[in-house]
Structures are given as C-alpha cells and as structure tokens.
Design a protein around this nucleic acid. Structure first.
Lengths: 225, 225
DNA sequence: CGGTCTAGACCGACCGTCGGTCGATAATCT
DNA sequence: AGATTATCGACCGACGGTCGGTCTAGACCG
C-alpha cells in the first residue's frame, strides 16, 4: 500500500503520459488504471471523475512553468522592456529547441476530442502568467517606457491575443506539410501580433522584439535531413 | 416520408432547441430522435455522427448572421470608421435588447460540457465575420484613416480579441449575481479592448466608439423590477 | 510485547447509458 | 419492374461511474 500523495501523483503521471501518447478522450479510465496497475475503485478513491483528474493534471503542469517567469519578473536588475522580451523569447526558444515535442503536442491538442484539455491548459496558462506579466507592465508604466491606461488588464489581454495566435499557428502548422507556403502567413500573423502588443503598450513599432524570427523559422520549417 | 432537406432541417431545428434548453453533451442522440420522432437509423442516414450534426448546426446558425454585416461592409455611402462602429454597436445593441436570451445562452455555452459547441461557434463567427470586417479595414487604410501594415490579419486579430473579451465577460456575468462589483471590472476590460483596437488601427484613443456604455450597462445590470 | 480496532487504501463485478451499426422493410422515382 | 432512397429499431461494444466488501498499516491498550 502506498501513501496517499504518492499514489495520487502516480496516477497523474501516468495520465499525463497516456493523454499525450494518445488523447484525453481516447484514454479510458479502464486503460489508465491498467497502466497504473490499480483497480477502478482505487481511481475513484482519488478522483471524483475523469474530468476532475484532467483539471488537477492541468493545474499541476501549468504551475510547474511559473517559477521561471516570476524570477524574470522580479529580477531587480532588468528594465521592463528587457523582462518582457526575455519572457516571450524564452518561450519561443524553448519551443524551437523542442520542435518535435511541440509538433506532437499540437497534433494531439488541436483535435476536437481534446478541446477540453486544450482549453483548460490555455486558461490555466493565462491565469498563471498574467500576474508576473502584469508586474512587468506595471513596472514599465512606472518607468515611463510603457503607456497604457489599463496596466492591469493589459497582461491578460496580451496573453489572450498570444493564445489566439498560438491557436492559429497550430492550425497552420498542422496543414503546413501539404501547403508549405502557409509558413509565410504564419510569420505575417506573428508580426501583426507583435505590432498590436507594441501599439497597445504605447511604444514605437519595432521597439520590442518579442519574436525571434530565426526561432520561428526553426519551428515552422522541417529540419533539413 | 419527407423531402431530404426538409427532414434534415427538422433534425437541425430540434437539435438547436434541445442543445440550448439542455446542453450538447446532455442531449443524447436517443433523446434527439425521440423529440424529432424518427428512428436511430434515420438520424444516421442524414448525419455521419453527432459531432457532424453539431458542426453543420453551427455553420447554419452562424451563416444566418452574415448578410446584415456584409450589407454594412458594402454600403458605398459610409466611411470605414462609421461602418466599423455600426458593426460593433449593432452587435452590442442586439445583445442588450435580448438580455435574457443572451444570459441564458451564456449560462449554457460556458460550461465544460458545452465547450465544443462554444468553440465551434466562436471559430465559425470569426471566420465568417473576418471577410466583411477585413473589407472595411482595407477601405479605412485606403481612405487614410486607419494605419496598419497588416490589414488582412487585422480583422482576424481584432475578432480574436473580441472573442476573448466576450469569454471574459461571460465568465464575469455568470458570477455577477454573487459579486456585483465585478461589473466594473468588465467595463474596464471593454475599454481596454477598445483602446487596443484603436491603437492597433493607428487612430487616436477615443476616435472609435465601438462600445456603447449604456448598452453595456443594460447587459450587465439586472433590470430594476 | 502481543492483541485488537479502525480509518482508509484497495478491489473488481456490475450498472445504466452512450454513440454507432446493420439488415430488413417501405415508399418513391424512372 | 427494378433501382434508389428513406425509414425503422434491435443490437453492439465501450464508456464513465458505483457499490459492497476486503485487506493492511499503525494507533491504542492491557
């Protein structure tokens, strides 16, 4: 017999692995408990429903990402502009470095059956990232480099836009194999978002390079074999 | 025996009614066919799956909204600014006039079980509204009143932002009964979006009143009894 | 120390419901 | 008459979830 938290995390770990190697709706509770090696009743001893498992899983995974970004936000040595750049570029570079994983995730998340998983991940990311980003924007307004009457809302709004962009990019990446010219329209969208964020923050176009074009190309273009 | 289209629309009509009086996942195919008065096999003669029914339903309903907006977009007598205002204000006024229906819809759509329905509605709206809105933005750029290097992407981007806002508003409306002070934070978000759109289009803050505050208050505040 | 008691970890047969299939039948068209 | 299309409903396997019960670690006690 195992400790409560140990078993619980074992179930969550297995669920994470299975949800990403198959999909949320394809993985039945029966398959999950087989993989963990427990009985149906044990699963429902730890989670009230399959959906509650999903929510807790998403929360746990999203929370793991946060410390790196709060560290950037609270670094006393950096200006708001640099912090913001660093936050967005860190995400982009990570995605470029883990291209295969990213694309595999996208292929799974952006399917109708997984929409609930995707939506919960998006919402959790926005809610968890908004505070550190909001701190940075506030700092920028105080430093006089950002000019927006809505510093509190700006973080959420920017993340919502970013999230909508990610969705578009994902859709296009999935169709990129067939129609490679779509890559250009993705880059267009990214530049548009960058412009939108800059203008919303009241800084000149091009002042804030949030997207590293070479990283983006690494994500979009299949590596030469 | 009925004509193909007649029967098909009968199924779609009934599905629409049931999905909004209960929810997408709560309404089983069995319940639907009972309400229509047909057999299981007949349903699957017209639709390959329950999900295909949903997609077609969403497409049909979203398409019905379009003509009104293309009419505005193609009116030769109006400036781009006026067209854009008229489009957004028309939506707002309609929502204010149909407050009960709106709130009932929100309470249904913004539940985990209905996420697929909601997402498909959102995507269909964005895809169908983007062309007329894009036309208007193009006109604005040509007339010299809008300034954006990405007129094609702008429409989609603005609609994505609007959609994210709608989602936030919906979440807050659902919790407004308990915490009425949330109304102010909704208004804040709306003003922020208005600013974001204006700045993205390169026009002065306040030049484009896309949101009628009295309409918004009518939506947010329960009518005095 | 050995014995007992209990909370809670664990089990798996079982349930109702679901989306979907299929072969038969009836109506309509050519 | 023959072909095509619309209709039917019994049937299926899989699903998420329940329930009555067993097993065991560790607290408590004589």
């Amino acid at each position: 017999m195992k400790q409560h938290d140990e078993r619980r995390n074992e179930i969550l770990d297995t669920a994470l692995r299975l949800f990403f190697s198959q999909s949320y709706s394809e993985v039945s509770v029966a398959a999950l408990i087989d993989a963990v090696g427990i009985a149906k009743g044990t699963f429902y001893h730890y989670f009230r429903s399959k959906e509650e498992l999903l929510s807790e899983l998403v929360l746990r995974e999203a929370s793991r990402q946060i410390p790196a970004y709060t560290a950037i936000a609270e670094d006393p040595a950096l200006t708001a502009e640099v912090k913001m750049q660093r936050m967005f570029l860190t995400i982009g570079a990570w995605k470029a470095d883990n291209r295969e994983l990213m694309i595999a995730s996208i292929r799974l998340l952006y399917r109708d059956e997984n929409i609930l998983l995707r939506h919960k991940l998006e919402q959790a990311s926005i809610e968890l990232f908004a505070p550190p980003l909001g701190t940075v924007i506030h700092q920028g307004v105080n430093e006089g480099c950002f000019h927006t009457p809505y510093p509190e809302v700006a973080a959420e709004l920017i993340l919502s836009m970013w999230s909508a962009l990610t969705q578009r990019v994902a859709e296009l990446i999935m169709r990129c194999d067939e129609e490679p010219h779509l890559a250009e329209s993705i880059l267009d969208r990214m530049r548009a978002i960058e412009t939108a964020i800059q203008r919303f923050l009241g800084i000149p176009d091009g002042a804030l390079a949030l997207i590293d074009e070479s990283d983006m190309r690494r994500i979009l273009m299949p590596p030469a074999v």
